[in-house]
Design a protein around this nucleic acid. Sequence first.
RNA 1: GGUCCGGUAGCUCAGCGGUUAGAGCAGGGGACUCAUAAUCCCUUGGUCCUAGGUUCGAAUCCUAGCCGGACUACCA
Length: 686
Amino acid sequence: MPRRLLVTSALPYANGHIHIGHLVEYIQTDIWVRFQKLFGNDCRYMCADDTHGTAIMIRARQEGRSEEEVIADMQAAHEQDFAGFGIEFDNYGSTHSEENRELCHEIWAAIRKANLVKEESVEQLFDPQAGTFLADRFVRGTCPKCKSPDQPGDNCSVCGHHYTPIELIDPVSTLTGSKPEVRSALHLFIELEKLHGFLAEWTQSGEHLQSEIANYLQGHFLGDPLRDWDISRPAPYFGFEIPDSPGNYWYVWFDAPIGYIASTWQWCKRNGQKLDDWWKSPDCEVHHFIGKDITYFHTLFWPGMLKTAGFSLPTKVHIHGFLTVDGEKMSKSKGTFVRARTYLNHLDPSYLRYFYATKLSSRVDDLDMAIDEFIAKVNTDLVNKVVNLASRTAKFVEKTGLSAKYPDDGGLFAAAAAAGDEIAAAYEECDFNKAMRLIVALADRANPFVEENKPWELRKDPASAERLQDVCTIALNLFRQLAIYLAPVLPKLAQQTGELLNNPITSWKQAATPLVGTPVAKFTHMLQRVEEKDLLAMIEESKEESQASQPAANGLAASAASDPWNDAGDALAAEPLAPECTIDEFAKVDLRVARIVSAEEVPEARKLLKLQLSLGGGVTKQVFAGIKAHYEPQQLVGRLVVCVANLAPRTMKFGVSEGMVVAAGGGTEAFLLTPDEGAKPGHRLH
RNA sequence: GGUCCGGUAGCUCAGCGGUUAGAGCAGGGGACUCAUAAUCCCUUGGUCCUAGGUUCGAAUCCUAGCCGGACUACCA
C-alpha cells in the first residue's frame, strides 16, 4: 500500500532571487520527493512564492509599478531558476491567490471561533510622507542607551541594546528620510499561550521534530508562557485585508504557510482531487522542509493554526542548517553569494545536486561547500567511477545490445540489489550523505570487475564475442543500478541511462532485476568533469554582480577613477555614513591619545578586556573594551590608542567603564587605531 | 552564562560495547590502455581531544575538563 505524502519547501520571498543557499533546501526536498515517487509512493511537492508584506510594497513604489507586477516578475524568475536545477514541483503557486485568500478566511474564522484573538492598541512609528507605519527595519536613529547615531530600528549595532523604534532618539524613516511620528493603531493578536499544552505535547512527542529542535523549543519557549503573536498590520499593507477588521491586513507570516495549502488546492482543482484528502485525512502525511531560521513559525505558530482550524498537523518538520562556503558565510564581496542563475551560467546543476547530497544529513548542522572538495567529489565519484562504467563498456555492445540472459557475475548484481534497502532507508531518513556513500562503494566494486575481465582484449578475438557481450552486459547493469539509486539526485543521468539502454528508469524496483536483451544506443558523454576555471569564473561573475548592485555611496564613487588602490566597497556598504553633523556637535566628543598601561581578561565576559588607560600626568581611566576576541592582553600593554575621554561613565556587571577605546570594523572584526610617531598620551584629536 | 551538536589517518567522514580501528581522497610504488589525464593492484599513515570511572572487554557507556560550531542570553 503506497503511502500518501504531501511535501513542501519554504516559500521563497518575492523580494529577491534564488541563490545557492536557498538551493540547499529545494534540492534536499526535491531529492526526497523524487525518491518517494520512484519508490512508488503517492507523493506531491507543493511550493509557492511568498508575496506579501511591506518590503514588496516599498519595492513596488520605488520601481513605480504595482505590487502585482513586481511579484509576477519575481515568480517567473524563481520558477525559471528552480527548473534550471531540475526542481520539480507538482504545483507552484503564490500566496497572492484567491485560493490562499479563501483559506485565510476559513482558518481565521476558526481561530476567532476558538476565542484566540485579542485586540490591542499598539504604538508604532508612522511615516507621514510615505503614509505608512514603519517596520523596525525601516527606521534608523540614535540609540537611547549609548547614543550611537544611525542605528537600526530594533537593536543597537554598537552597544547591542534592544529597544523598540519608538525609543530611538531622532528616528528617521529610511523610506523617505522624513521624521516619523508616533501613532497608535489597533493590532490583532493570537493568544498562543492558550495552546501551550497542545504545543508542548506535540513538539515533545519525539516524532514530528528532530530531537535538537524539540530540545530547543522546550528550553527557549515552552518553559515560559508563550507570547501573543501580532498577526495584523494596519493599512497600507500589501496583503489580504482581515474580513472582520477593516483597514487591517494579515501579517505576511500569517498567510505565508497557508500558502502550502492553497498551492495544494490549486493542484487539486487541476487534477480532480479533493483538498480534504490531502490536508484533513489521517492517511496523508504532511512533510515540511525548512531552514533553521524559520523554526519558530513552523513549530509553534503553524501547528497551532492547523490544530485550531482542523487541518492535518505536520507529520514531520525537517529542518536543515545554512550553507557556508569554504567555512565562512556566503559573502557578496568574496563572490561566494552565488545566484542560481549565475551558477547555471557556468556549471552543470547535477554537480550541485550531487554535492549537496553528499553533505546533507537528517540533522540541523550547517553544511560547508569547500571548492576543492566540490571538484573532487563530483569528478572522482561521478565521472571517474560511476559514469566511467558506462563509458568504458557501452560502445562494445553498440552493435549487439545486451545479452539475452544475464550472465554469472559472481554475485555482484545481487549484492548491489541487496544494498537497495539500506540505501532506500538512508533516503527516507534524509541521510543523503549515507546514501551517496553506499552508492559510490558499489561503484568501487564494479570497476575492478571490468578490469579483471578486460573487454578491450576480448574484442580482439572474434571467438570471444559472446564473452565480450556478457562482460559488458554485467558492467552496464551494475552501472544501471547506480543510475537508479542516484535517480533522485541525478534525474538527468537516470534519463540518459534509460536512453542508452533503451529502457526508461521509472521505479526503484528496477534495481533488483537485471536488464537483458535491449539494444544499446551510441554512447555519448553523460557528465563533463568540473573545471576549476569555471568555478572561478562563476565566483568572479558573482563579485561583479554584487559590485554593480551596490549603490554608489553618497557620490563618493565618482572619485573612484582617480583612486589607484581600488578598495572594495563592502565596509562602507555594511555601515553607511551617519547623518551629517556640525563641527560643534563633533567637538562635544573629546577624543584623546591614551596609553594602555594594563590589560587583563574579564574571565566571566566573552567579549571584554579590562584596560587601564593613561592620559599622562597620572590621569588614568578604566575602560572595558569588547575586543577580547581580537587581541591578547599582553600585546596591548604599552601601546597608544585613541579613546573617548569624556564619555559618561557606565556601571557594568564587572565594574565601571569610564570611556571607550575606538576601533574600526564591526561585527566580527575590530582594529584598534594607533597615532603616528610623536603623539603623546593626552593629545586631543581635532 | 545556558542549551544543543561535534572532536577518529594530511583532508572528508564511517564505525557508537566484543576479533589486530575502517573507507574515499591526497602521498608512495607498480600494472593497464577500453574509458572524460579516467581505471586496477599494492602501500605509507592513527596516544580514536584529555583525565578519571563502569565493564571480563570502551573509539563506542558515565563523569569532569579542553577545543570547535550552532542557537540563546548577558555585556560592550
